[in-house]
Design a protein around this nucleic acid. Sequence first.
DNA 1: CGGCACGTTGAAGTGACTCAATTCGCGTGG
DNA 2: CCACGCGAATTGAGTCACTTCAACGTGCCG
Lengths: 252, 252
Amino acid sequence: MARQTDRPTAKQALDLLIETMARHSSLSNADERAFRRLHPRLGKLERGADIVRQGDRPRVAVMVMSGMLARYHTGPNGERQYLSLHIAGDLPDLQSLFLGIMDHSVGALSEAQIASFPHAEILSLVKRMPSAAVALWRHTLIDSAIFRQAITTVGRRGAAARVAHLFCEQFTRARAVGTVSGWSCPFPLSQSQIGQVVGLSLPTVHRATRSLRKENCADVRGGRLWILNWQRLSHKAGFDPIYLYADLSEDA
Amino acid sequence: MARQTDRPTAKQALDLLIETMARHSSLSNADERAFRRLHPRLGKLERGADIVRQGDRPRVAVMVMSGMLARYHTGPNGERQYLSLHIAGDLPDLQSLFLGIMDHSVGALSEAQIASFPHAEILSLVKRMPSAAVALWRHTLIDSAIFRQAITTVGRRGAAARVAHLFCEQFTRARAVGTVSGWSCPFPLSQSQIGQVVGLSLPTVHRATRSLRKENCADVRGGRLWILNWQRLSHKAGFDPIYLYADLSEDA
DNA sequence: CGGCACGTTGAAGTGACTCAATTCGCGTGG
DNA sequence: CCACGCGAATTGAGTCACTTCAACGTGCCG
């Protein structure tokens, strides 16, 4: 498979891109060939490093190959609001292809391997292969659906449910890309960062995770999330995975 | 212009669609002709009526021609979390073109005129005219940026700032589509609904709007939003309109 | 006139916040 | 090998913003 911890190759980047698109869109051979004509530039990010900042005008789109990136807004006092977490296969700044200016920043929450695709190449692919373009488009639409969920998570759910929902979403997405092992998946966030994702203070996050641990729902330790009782956890969270559009039962 | 309160025509629907796309994307004559080949079905909605529900699989995409629609999630106890408000030119369920199942509902917050475009026709337009497709794609990406703002509004801002930010966004968007008159624009939400947008209880919304009124920032009366002091209001809100991508200074 | 939806307001409760202190785990350097 | 330092986790105390509950006003429409 296309996922090692050591130095990845351009071929692996293209494999991962195609694999990711194929997860929600059915690609023809021609689509696949079109994607393979791209020339990714590989790179590595330290924990905490940014790839783009609010206000930038990127000329490439970044794909995560390993590790975790996140989008975030920066408030007037420097506080962060994380908007989304991104794992292997995600393209967290693809919208810059058509929006020009970044309305948020993207940074690494763990050491990460990335691949950059020049906008110019993606644009020519989009003009040439509408069906491949649709796959990319759909990718951004799923993104959008995840944002919508984030709104109701932060707007309506109580503290424990917010954290639980975050856990459910992360685990489900990790399972889709194959980074789970048993009932655990990578989860490099500190409690303070969890708070910046779901809109809670550090102490509240701590009490919420403690309660989830006590009730044998889930636990975070050593940079990993452990699911102890999926049933109970997802029930507490009010988690319904349809919005992740993980299955390929579409028409299009 | 393409905006009357009486019965709109198909031509007006196409005009509005093209006008909206041209606001953020530069359309060629060929693009415009391609859009004009669509066959919208016109309709009218009563206040409170839904056009699609969570779980549906729509076969058309809806454009608002007048009035206001909104997307919303429904919680387990029937409570709503509104996700976005939509005015003339918006396509609040365009994502259904590629996502199949709706992860949220769309309903009317006021009496509204709408135009429906069959998915099949849009799909063939997308295959035929990549540049027109890009305009639609960009439309969904701006949507996405608005969702991102909603996350930080609900996640980080205090009560007054949430309401103020909502006011700023609505007024700015209304100005872009030309439904403002002087310093006021349509705003058909009850205080209770405002609460369901920004994640606050009714009494809190009331106190927030009262405080904004007392400080001469803004006022809501008779279904309209009145901006009393834009400077002060947008400052209170921490409002920065870049995320609305109102200007057309892109490359693409 | 009576009903209804919405705005307005008060009182009491509570969940989450801030501030602050302590502990733990771990890497580093003496 | 141990002392130290640092970031993160853990916990408590006190406060505050927002919630819930409840009541009342007000304007509009049948």
